[in-house]
């Protein structure tokens, strides 16, 4: 059985790497470090899960989230939002499947990612 696709959109290369390493065992990975590239890529792929940083160069995480939520193709895609801003974490609580406040623990991220894709 092919591994589900996880799309990591995170501008910080270190965090991007940590997340990639964390999820590589369980997911097929695609990564991206800016919003505009992510938007382009999302036209062609349907990830099972997206790890989305809110604060991105180019198209913001918030706009990308809005796009995902309005795209029929991505209806089944789960979104884990990461942010260093606790306010935004609060306000986007209902739009994302999970909002994680940075720093994100790799262990917690893996657990949540697996849990969220298993939800019906």
């Amino acid at each position: 059985m092919p591994k589900p696709l996880a799309f990591i959109i995170e501008d910080d290369p270190q965090l991007n790497e940590i997340m990639s390493i964390t999820l590589q065992a369980d997911f097929e990975l695609e990564t991206c470090v800016d919003g505009d590239t992510a938007m382009e890529r999302l036209k062609n792929v349907v990830p099972r899960i997206i790890i989305l940083d809110l604060n991105l160069p180019g198209t913001s995480g918030r706009d990308i989230l809005t796009c995902i939520r309005s795209d029929e193709r991505l209806a089944k895609t789960r979104v884990i939002l990461t942010t260093a801003d606790n306010r935004q974490a609060e306000t986007l609580h209902n739009d994302a499947d999970i909002v994680l406040l940075k720093p994100v623990s790799p262990k917690q991220l893996r657990e949540l990612a697996l849990r969220v894709i298993s939800m019906p």
């Binding site: 910080d12 270190q14 965090l15 940590i18 997340m19 390493i21 964390t22 604060n55 260093a84 801003d85 606790n86 406040l101 940075k102 720093p103 994100v104 623990s105 790799p106 262990k107």
Partner: peptide, 17 residues
């Protein structure tokens, strides 16, 4: 806090890895 959280993510992430 935003500026602190990002490097903290790095520290915590690499340490856990």
């Amino acid at each position: 806090s935003h500026e602190l959280r990002t490097p903290l993510g790095g520290i915590l992430g690499y340490a856990e890895l």
